[in-house]
Design a binder for these strands. Structure first.
Lengths: 251, 251
DNA sequence: CGATGAATTGACCGATGTCAAGTGGCGTGG
DNA sequence: CCACGCCACTTGACATCGGTCAATTCATCG
């Protein structure tokens, strides 16, 4: 637990809120799965076709069921992509950080968003309207190719999670979820990898397909074993290796 | 149950094994998600870049873990795409019929097949080697675009199944699985929709994420209610509407 | 007509979800 | 600055769906 009074200790939990203001935007685009491989001129072109949007923490960037207008790429901040089922269950599809994108299919099909994206931090995103994106793809076929590769990768990931849900017990799935999060949103500190985003037990439950109660019990157990340190909406992974062991365990 | 002795009744269960021999291959390509929208000349070109392979029922078209060489498109027959997890569980990803394809990511990445494809019937498939496919995509950017769209659709489907697995009880999932199968492999008969492929209780279980025992009980129940008729490795859907009701049930 | 593998059925049980009742930390307003 | 209240989290007791196992039965094919 993180309540040992020492506020020096607490520095570990100060979150990086840096939101770059110059124009490293092109760098972000150049590193993204969708636009990688384009020349600087082409990236300029792509960037100019987009408009920048700002969101405050907690705001919905897109809302599931709304008519799908635009393809989004996160420039700074973080987002949570969530689906809510007909019977009200929340399912957390994935987390996004700068360079990650969502709404590709929705924007191109023009139908409706199949999920909601919620800004976790104050965030900014570039958005391209459906037709604009289609034109860009026409002009730079590389984008379509990249898009295809990105979607195949997501597909593999999703298949894997499906498989895990089907065959692995809860504790292993939570371990997998934490490993994914520490890869995606991890911040190295001297004590371990801090998940750099508010992460409640319920979030983690929705991400690993269980309930907040089970997550609570499991985290507590891990905390006692020294694998993680937890606080209110905070998780710090002290030993990734232990998590890997837990995730792999055939028992 | 299908054991009423009347062999006239049995005609319902004769499977269509037609394996077209002329050259409607181009039609199949033209209708496939990957090659749709190409001109006939381009389709010719595409077709000539491929080689045809034959498989007998039960043969593996690709084996999970083998080095990924080629992109496959089923021309006739049916296939079952299966993943086996590290701990030996089988997970049925999807079924394929003519025009369906698999191995796109594997062929392009050149890594290894992430699943096995088993021929259900005697089957034939066109295969394109990784480099060849990459060249075709370079030449006809439409293919990459189509590929992207196909993968986004698969992704949506996979997300949906993930969601279902997470939130719906077994009976609903089995109903969903049967509905998918009757769309994909259904054969209209006067009595209902026959799943046109040997489908054991275990297959259905692997497809809906449960056990053959549960499937057996559920099918029995449905049979008594007149929703389906079943036989050894055969399922006939008598009332799709009832299945839709069951699948939607919030209870 | 017998062998083989699919399907059925019953009994059992265990991992997880559900529910209810706290506990404690953090922020807000007096 | 303190107290209050909110909300995340914890913890225990309990219920239950559906998986596991074992024993048959049945159907299809040689």
């Amino acid at each position: 637990m993180v309540h040992d009074g020492s506020s020096a200790e607490e520095t570990i939990y100060r979150r990086a809120t840096s939101c770059v203001m110059i124009d490293p935007i092109l760098h972000i685009l150049a590193d993204s799965s969708v636009f990688q491989g384009l020349s600087e001129r082409e990236l300029q072109d792509v960037r100019e076709a987009a408009t920048m949007r700002r969101y405050v923490a907690g705001e919905l960037m897109v809302r599931q069921g709304d008519p799908a207008l635009a393809f989004h790429m996160l420039i700074c901040g973080h987002a949570k992509l969530v689906q809510v089922t007909p019977d009200g269950h929340q399912v957390l599809i994935r987390y996004a950080r700068p360079g990650h994108s969502f709404g590709l299919r929705s924007a191109l099909s023009g139908f409706e968003y199949s999920l909601s994206a919620e800004a976790i931090d104050d965030s900014r995103a570039l958005v391209w309207y459906g037709e604009v994106l289609a034109q860009l793809m026409e002009r730079y076929s590389r984008i379509a190719f990249n898009g295809m590769r990105m979607m195949t990768l997501r597909n593999v990931e999703m298949q894997l999670r499906y498989q895990e849900l089907l065959t692995e017990p809860v504790e292993q799935r939570v371990a997998q979820a934490l490993l994914r999060l520490s890869n995606d949103m991890g911040q190295k500190t001297k004590e371990g990898i801090l998940i750099d985003v508010p992460l409640s037990r319920e979030d983690l439950a929705e991400y690993s397909g269980t309930t907040l109660y089970s997550v609570s019990r499991i985290l507590r157990q891990w905390e006692n074993a020294g694998v993680v340190r937890t606080g209110r909406e905070r998780v710090l992974v002290r030993s990734q290796d232990s998590l890997l062991d837990i995730a792999a365990a055939t028992i």
